[in-house]
Design a binder for these strands. Sequence first.
DNA 1: CGGAAAAACTTTAAGCTTGAAGTTTTTTTC
DNA 2: GAAAAAAACTTCAAGCTTAAAGTTTTTCCG
Lengths: 174, 174
Amino acid sequence: MDESKADESRAEWLDGETKVLEAPGDHGAEIRLWLRLLTCTTLAETEIRRRLREEFDFTLPRFDLMAQLERAENGMVLGEVSRRMMVSAGNLTALVERLVEMGYVSRTVSPKDRRVQIVALTDEGRAAFRTMADRHGEWVGELFKDLSRHDEALLMEALGRLKGSVRSALSGPQ
Amino acid sequence: MDESKADESRAEWLDGETKVLEAPGDHGAEIRLWLRLLTCTTLAETEIRRRLREEFDFTLPRFDLMAQLERAENGMVLGEVSRRMMVSAGNLTALVERLVEMGYVSRTVSPKDRRVQIVALTDEGRAAFRTMADRHGEWVGELFKDLSRHDEALLMEALGRLKGSVRSALSGPQ
DNA sequence: CGGAAAAACTTTAAGCTTGAAGTTTTTTTC
DNA sequence: GAAAAAAACTTCAAGCTTAAAGTTTTTCCG
């Protein structure tokens, strides 16, 4: 858009008050780390999608949605599902509709607020999810098999800090 | 990992010929690690997609495709792009078509084998990619800002081993 | 009270993605 | 030297995803 202002006014910002914008915008190490992270995730996710499809004729988004609902004994407001899954509300409309058709999920209008939809697992849905979740656990275990306990703990911690870094970068500007 | 309850309930199943089903079906730690990995990736990727869209009206798949082509001075066979990007060939057809229309990519039939398509960045494409890639680097640097050098190196190594584990699980059963 | 704003969705258009089926060209095999 | 098999795509249908716009309901506030 307006790329002109950044260049023009940059010189002025370079005096004391603002931190220098790293002359060599290297970031090479971070990019490589980012790509490796992406590769790990993509490899594992693709395989999990494939097995879910092959073994249960099911999709990962549906599985993820049911996973959210499993923890909520009395169902969950759609907006809350949206927030937890980090997907748009518009996305969920069709997803929930499908699961309702399959008999795995129920959807009711809240009596307190008629704008609100409450979704919950049916008994059948809960049973189906349990079966799939058990296999899912085995798959992840298999994919991570060669990782030592030490690496596991170490990744858990370091990824926690990475998550913090990303989150702080996202909330920072505002 | 000592889930003795599981061991007990499983005992009756353990007639001689059935092989023990790995560990007790716990995998809790692996699942949590997997979910954390997924969260990190999703958070960063969503933000990168958003900025690419906002600042350049461009998509991540197109960016990724151009990133592959940038390293190939003389273009690349479509099948090779497919393998490197880990996406289906059918996916690339439309993607390449778009970039050709934009003037960022050229596509030619190989003279040696008329089934083969060779794709390459145009000069304009190369310039456009450079601009976007620079910003992309800054974004990743920003998102990973709070990560220490030590964590960076540590993640790089441990994720390398994770990648190996996943790869070996994929190629194992054949 | 009553209009404006906000909230919680739903709908829609555009784009990515895949697996499966189809096409064209090359290689293998007998 | 054909027929068969393989390779390298392209096409297609189905599904996920989002941003933006639209609908209904509730809340705010003057």
